[in-house]
Design a protein around this nucleic acid. Structure first.
Lengths: 216, 216
DNA sequence: TTTATTATTGAACGGATGTACAGTAATTGG
DNA sequence: CCAATTACTGTACATCCGTTCAATAATAAA
């Protein structure tokens, strides 16, 4: 027979915060906005209600921390799959898409978490700050990929002006977000293969100079 | 001096429901998820708390009705701006974009409402049904526009196969959603003019056959 | 005018929420 | 080994939530 679990399970604050963040993400994934509750998160993490207010100034702070953590994790994962100097710039896009359109990302539960975060941005400066940072970083990466692609194609002699790469990156970012959103809201309307085709096709259009209008 | 407002203000059920929907949308626009409350909506509509449960089986039904109403309104407005047989098919896209990228649509408050709706889809079959219907209708319209465009360009002799139009419509729909989402979450990263350029550029790419990969 | 119907009110109820706080125990430093 | 620190528990409190329901009043029907 096992002895009763210890009531006071003391661990390092950093580790505890990590556990709380994971519990919060699980609650949001399972229950959406209804999972955004001190009591539910505490139960999920097997701790008492009061502990959250000991480690965070309030539940809003915990949620912001969870947003930051998840956001960073996805960024690292997706960009980490693209080796910087291997293959052509065009190949790097395919590698990027292969990671982006994976079951871990294209998961209705993940979007469920994200949508709750989005709903909090407009009324929480803290959440907005996390979003702005993550979004800027993501667009910057895409802009780098696109610049490489333009350079590679033109051989360095007068590729598209830098302004085009910035707007193009915003366009691609929006396209990827939109595909992710629509597929997760209803996975039955199109397949992942079709989603990849849409993204690859957009890059083809960029390579073929079809986006010249963006230079203006 | 004005006499005190009558306590019992009786109106037709249809009109009352309309008022309740409008009040609900105002609450969501102003307070996000926090505005999703019987008491706040009732106060906004200047009625008692109990009235909502008299006209709807529960607040979820009211929200679903609000989703349906807003969704239909936007659809009518955006598609209504495109006269069917005037100008070229390419011109029709520009007319469509002019309406879509208008301040009434590109309004952070409107996205704030929408994001709450999205967050409810996964746990409410009713909300999901509204979304699926609206989304299918929107994609069908875009597919029609794209078919016209392909027809116009090829003169009717062997334009892109129908399958391409379907996937292309999904891609354009995702692009428009993504631009809307990103701009509303942070209107400072790019301008509406740039947003229009991105959309127009996508259509240019479609016209120039840059999306051949989508034929599957 | 009388009756039936129903839109509307507002109080009541049980339950869930976030935060505050006094008490408890595990760790750390001397 | 003792003291100080702090991670942790669990109750208490005030507030909000959605729904129910008897009472009320405005309209429609007869």
């Amino acid at each position: 027979m096992k002895q009763p679990a210890r009531k006071f399970n003391r661990i390092q604050p950093d580790l505890r915060r990590e556990h709380l963040v994971e519990a919060a993400l699980r609650c949001l994934a399972d229950q959406g906005h209804a999972g955004l509750s001190v009591r539910k998160i505490a139960a999920e993490a097997n701790v008492s209600v009061g502990l959250i207010n000991h480690h965070y100034d309030g539940i809003d702070r915990l949620i912001a921390h969870a947003y930051e953590t998840l956001s960073q994790g996805i960024f690292d994962r997706v960009t980490g799959a693209v080796a910087p100097a291997v293959g052509t710039a065009r190949d790097r896009f395919s590698a990027f898409f292969r990671e982006y359109f994976s079951p871990d990302i294209f998961d209705p539960k993940l979007l469920g978490v994200w949508v709750v975060f989005w709903s909090l941005i407009r009324h929480s400066p803290e959440m907005k700050a996390v979003h702005d940072r993550a979004n800027a970083a993501f667009c910057a990466v895409l802009e780098g990929y696109l610049s490489d692609l333009a350079m590679e194609r033109s051989g360095g002699d007068g590729g598209p002006p830098p302004a085009a790469a910035r707007v193009a990156a915003i366009g691609l970012s929006a396209l990827l977000d939109g595909i992710w959103l629509q597929w997760c809201l209803n996975p039955d309307t199109f397949t992942i293969a079709e989603a990849i085709a849409i993204a690859e096709s957009w890059v083809d259009g960029f390579v073929n100079g079809g986006h010249g209008r963006l230079a203006g």
